[in-house]
Design a protein around this nucleic acid. Structure first.
Lengths: 110, 110
DNA sequence: TTTGTTGATTGCAATATTACGATTAATATT
DNA sequence: AATATTAATCGTAATATTGCAATCAACAAA
């Protein structure tokens, strides 16, 4: 049905999935890497850097902002974007806990 | 258009996105957590544990297997699933590099 | 005020994802 | 052989995502 049944999962599981989903598109990965490298940049720069149309980049930025991973600051006609450090750190904690789970038994079942 | 333009991104960016995408659904997060906890289990157990229909779980398992994160072993009429340790470790390396990027300048742009 | 620049929003088309009923395939059990 | 159990596959419906042309809104510059 295309409808994820979030109510049958824990809050933690849904949160992991939400973060992962936003990283599940190479354009957003690319935007984030660029923001880490450049520290701050304007929407138009990302359009040139990545090569997708301006509305597409704008939409990806909106999703990243909505999850709190980036900040946007209006500077005249331009909007400056940067990584939201505190939220990025919090996200890392959640994702690391998931990724660094340990198996009780190290040998494979099969 | 609903079509991701993978050719405009680096292989690394596409790989990060592929891994992230598979974690982008709470059912798959839940399956993986359960496999870590139980070490190995049968498809039917996951159906009972999670509460989605059998074809749905089977489909999620297929995606996880396709990415190499789990193994499946036929045992009579049952199929035993477990984490693919080596591939999980390799995935962790790729994802950690992305998540642990450092900002050159610590102060926010805005 | 008019024009230019920048980025958000809208509307739409194409494709992808999620979920499950029905069925099938494979093996176990009787 | 007939039946039961288990999981994969098929088909389909509903919803979500991606991408962009066109437009709009806000501000800057002339």
């Amino acid at each position: 049905m295309g409808l994820t049944k979030t109510e049958m999962f824990t809050e933690q599981q849904n949160q992991i999935a939400l973060f992962a989903k936003v990283f599940g598109h190479p354009a957003r990965v690319s935007i984030l890497q660029h923001l880490f490298k450049i520290n701050s940049c304007v929407c138009g720069d990302l359009v040139n850097e990545i090569g997708l149309a301006q509305p597409t980049i704008s939409q990806h930025l909106k999703e990243l902002k909505h999850l709190g991973l980036i900040k946007g600051n209006v500077e005249g006609t331009r909007v400056c974007y940067c990584i939201h450090n505190e939220n990025w750190t919090a996200m890392k904690k959640v994702m690391s806990e998931f990724l660094n789970q340990d198996l009780i038994q190290k040998q494979d079942c099969c």
